[in-house]
Design a protein around this nucleic acid. Structure first.
Lengths: 226, 226
DNA sequence: AACATAAGAATCGTTGAACAATTCGACAAG
DNA sequence: CTTGTCGAATTGTTCAACGATTCTTATGTT
């Protein structure tokens, strides 16, 4: 009996998880990440609360949640805007990636820890073969998310999730995301092979170069309209 | 004249910073970090909104803010509680520290980048000499905060701030924080000397050992009452 | 025409009250 | 000892209102 209780107690967090504000936040988060709400756009409290059929107060609670995830920008007395990352933001995002991913590749790896990473890489290659560049982008994100999760830390996973969501904002401002994602399919493979070969330092060096390159491309193609 | 404008524009973010909800959050954050509100304690909406003279709605916005900082635990229909970290949380906090601080010590250092770190170390030694263990704890936290800021990333600084605030919760549950902080004054000095001597790998190894030791002490002395 | 100023509209910030939904403890029944 | 029920207390959510702030437009001055 005791073990049953212990088992069930693992599902406990799922119970409390459903206030209206959080569900509203989920909806808005999806809308933002899919580009329905564009970076820089203002989100009117009245319009959206009416549209979703919730009160302004509840909507504001949802806004707070997304603000802390850096997806929304809350300006006092002016309203909330979909975040429009600056070039400096892009630099910082890549600083964090270098730390998180660099630490991950240096880590001594367990045998099957890399399966998720490898899977994401193959998905990217498959999507690339089919000219599905939306799919390449998604798989690429999964690849790096899985890479970072080698650190074995829930908090770092969470941080990476937020970071990638923020990066998606940047992609939405770019002209053609295709040209951006294309070159990295091959790089992912090389990086993974270096890790699997047990050469953490070489992998780390390759990764640094990888990120330097990506960042370079990004800030170059990135000129947010003010 | 232009330079004056440029100078002032750096203070601009501080201007917008003053909604009632945020000020309430500041107050509560201070109260929590000083231990006035104990981990596990429930914070009644009615009592606190009355006590601070703000409406329940405004207080709830403040609660949301602190919830996202992991200082409060929001349980649906049951209220908010001061977060009581689990032993597993402590482990994860140290996982993140190893990544952030490890990356910091490996970084090639600019000449004066370490001054803030050195200053914090000296403050800790000074406080230790005066048997001011509260002060030692504070200076110790500043030491590691400064160390992490060597990464040069605002986002990582922010992450570390939250992480240390969370660690403070753990300290509040411990029996005698003095015995915990005491041994690390010397270690801070040794670590700093290794960095200054330009031996990043040795410093990193020493740091890992440092954090292993601290974590060990902590989870051992840590037995949250359920 | 350019600029400053002022009035007005729109929107946000905050409050207070209200009611439904949920939790929790006490107590009775099996 | 377990289960069901009731009621008090607290949270979740909505609504309407009003002051405060920002944005827009119109007006007037140089």
């Amino acid at each position: 009996m005791d073990d049953v209780v212990a088992d069930l107690s693992q599902d406990r967090p799922r119970l409390g998880r459903s206030s209206t504000a959080e569900r509203v936040a989920d909806i808005l988060r999806d809308r933002i990440s899919e580009g329905f709400f564009r970076p820089g756009q203002r989100l009117s409290e009245e319009t959206i609360s009416e549209g979703l059929g919730v009160s302004r107060n509840t909507l504001r609670e949802a806004f707070r949640l997304l603000g802390h995830e850096r997806l929304l920008d809350h300006k006092l007395n002016r309203g909330v805007f979909v975040r429009l990352p600056s070039a400096e933001d892009v630099l910082d995002l890549y600083r964090v990636r270098r730390v998180l991913e660099g630490s991950a590749v240096r880590r001594p790896l367990s045998p099957q820890a890399l399966t998720v990473v490898r899977e994401a890489m193959r998905d990217a290659e498959r999507a690339a073969a089919e000219d599905d560049w939306q799919g390449v982008g998604t798989a690429n994100i999964r690849f790096h998310q899985a890479l970072v999760s080698l650190n074995g830390s829930p908090r770092i996973d969470e941080l990476m999730r937020q970071l990638l969501a923020e990066l998606r904002l940047v992609f939405h401002v770019m002209k053609n995301p295709r040209a951006f994602h294309e070159p990295f399919v091959d790089r992912n493979r090389t990086l993974l092979e270096l890790i699997e070969a047990g050469k953490p330092e070489e992998a780390a060096a390759y990764l640094d170069d990888y990120l330097d390159h990506a960042q370079e491309l990004l800030v170059h193609a990135y000129e947010p309209n003010r």
